[in-house]
Simulated assay, not measured.
Amino acid sequence: MRAARPRWNACCALLDPFAVGDTAGAGGSTSTGRYGEEPPRRHQLLVGAASASDLGVRQQPRAATADNGQRSRLWQPADDSGPDRPRASFRAGFGPHALAVTDMILAYTDTVLSGDRAYLTDWQVEVNHSIKETGLSFNTDAVLAVPTKTSEVRLFELDNGTMSQARLAKEVWDYERYAGHRVWGGARGPHGSTYPFWQRHRYTRSERFPRLHVVLAGMEEHLLNNRRQALTADARGITIAMWVNTLPRLQRGEPWYEIGVDDPYRRRERYPEPAGR
């Protein structure tokens, strides 16, 4: 039986202009995606996007990842004799989106962080946020670990011009629903006290819910500005910190638009307390 190709090799084959050649060992291992002494190149982030589970941070299993070098479910041979080829859904969807996410991360670190990537301690892509009790589940395109006094990470959603305006609005409101869910404190907590689910089980070192950054790409700039204005109207009244920008503006270092402010008190009024024990 023919051995499966390493995941990073397949990703580089798909994105040939950014392929790095035979830089990994015989075992097919790849960079963890963390910043070292040298700034990461675009292809390094792309490999990280294709194998997010290698980043060493909490990660829900995804169809696009595989453990122990096994073939990802997104990769299937065209036939028993031909070479492995990505399915059409991968070529049409994941590839362009991964490129745009990479451009977003690089633009953010080059402009907002002023190129000082020492502040960026880690990152993770395609991060699942879910609450079993309510059935809420969504994936965040990128989570950058930039620790501050009140928050340990920053959340990033990128629309590459493929989502409808209604779907984009639903995604940003899902973040508020996630932030508003509360749970009982448990055996160690004070009797009768509830806590935000995210603070108890996800971002335990954060005092405030992480800021959401929405980046719009994949269209002419005047169309991106129209989508930004529509999203501003759709997100009116949201109770999480939310900034929006277009990818061209971000790459030029232009400021973000603040369209949401973190308000835990109003958020708590909006979402009911969990049922008593």
Score class of each variant (00 low, 15 high):
Trp198Met: 02
Leu144Lys: 05
Gly135Arg: 07
Leu55Val: 05
Pro83Asn: 06
Ala230His: 11
Val172Ala: 13
Thr109Arg: 01
Leu14Asp: 05
Asn226Gly: 15
Thr30Gln: 14
Arg228Phe: 12
Gly69Asp: 01
Gly186Val: 01
Arg91Tyr: 10
Val47Tyr: 13
Ala166Asp: 15
Asp122Phe: 03
Ser151Val: 11
Val214Gln: 06
Gly189Pro: 04
Gly36His: 07
Val153Phe: 03
Ala10Thr: 02
Leu155Asp: 03
Pro255Asn: 11
Pro83Cys: 10
Phe94Ser: 08
Arg73Lys: 00
His201Met: 03
Ala241Ile: 03
Val20Cys: 11
Val172Leu: 15
Leu250Tyr: 07
Glu176His: 15
Gly69Leu: 02
His129Lys: 05
Ala3Cys: 11
Arg205Phe: 03
Ile259Leu: 04
Arg5Ala: 12
Arg227Trp: 12
Arg71Ala: 00
Leu158Ser: 05
Gly180Ser: 11
Gly237Leu: 12
Arg167Phe: 13
Arg73Trp: 06
Arg188Asp: 11
Gly95Cys: 15
Thr239Cys: 06
Phe94Arg: 02
Arg202Phe: 07
Pro255Glu: 08
Trp75Pro: 02
Asp234Cys: 09
Gln44Tyr: 04
Gly27Gln: 02
Leu113Arg: 02
Glu273Arg: 09
Pro190Leu: 08
Ala179Ile: 14
Arg252Pro: 07
Trp198Val: 02
Trp198Cys: 04
Pro86Ala: 10
Arg277Glu: 13
Asp54Glu: 03
Phe138Ser: 03
Gln60Asn: 15
Phe138Asp: 03
Gly36Arg: 00
Ala63Asn: 15
Phe209Asp: 12
Gly237Tyr: 11
Leu247Phe: 01
Pro83His: 14
Arg211Leu: 06
Gly192Trp: 07
Trp256Pro: 00
Asp262Asn: 10
Ala100Ile: 13
Cys11Gly: 04
Val153Ser: 08
Leu14Gly: 10
Leu14Asn: 10
Val214Thr: 12
Arg42Tyr: 12
Ala52Leu: 00
Trp198Lys: 06
Leu14Lys: 11
Pro147Cys: 14
Glu38Ile: 09
Ala107Lys: 00
Tyr178Gly: 08
Cys11Ile: 09
Pro196Lys: 01
Arg58Leu: 14
Ser130Val: 14
Leu46Asp: 14
Gln229Val: 12
Leu247Cys: 02
Thr140Arg: 01
Thr148Val: 15
Leu250Asp: 11
Asp122Gln: 13
Asp79Trp: 15
Trp75Ser: 14
Phe138Ala: 09
Arg41Phe: 10
Pro17Glu: 12
Gln76Trp: 09
Leu155Gln: 05
Leu120Gln: 02
Arg85Gln: 14
Phe18Trp: 12
Ile240Asn: 01
Met1Ser: 09
Trp8Phe: 01
Ala52Gln: 00
Pro17Arg: 01
Asp116Arg: 13
Arg5Gln: 03
Arg42Trp: 03
Ser114Pro: 00
Val101Pro: 09
Asn68Arg: 05
Gly25Met: 08
Asp79Ser: 05
Arg85Cys: 11
Gly218Glu: 15
Gly189Ala: 06
Ala49Gln: 04
Arg42Asp: 00
Gly260Ser: 10
Asp263Asn: 08
Thr239Phe: 03
Arg268Ala: 11
Tyr175Ile: 09
Val172Cys: 12
Val244Gln: 05
Trp198Pro: 00
Asn128Pro: 02
Thr134Gly: 08
Asn226Leu: 13
Lys132Asn: 10
Gly260Phe: 01
Thr134Cys: 14
Phe156Ala: 00
Glu133Leu: 01
Ser89Cys: 00
Tyr175His: 12
Asp110Gln: 05
His191Glu: 09
Arg270His: 09
Gly189Glu: 12
Ser72Val: 00
Arg277Thr: 03
Gln165His: 13
Lys149Cys: 07
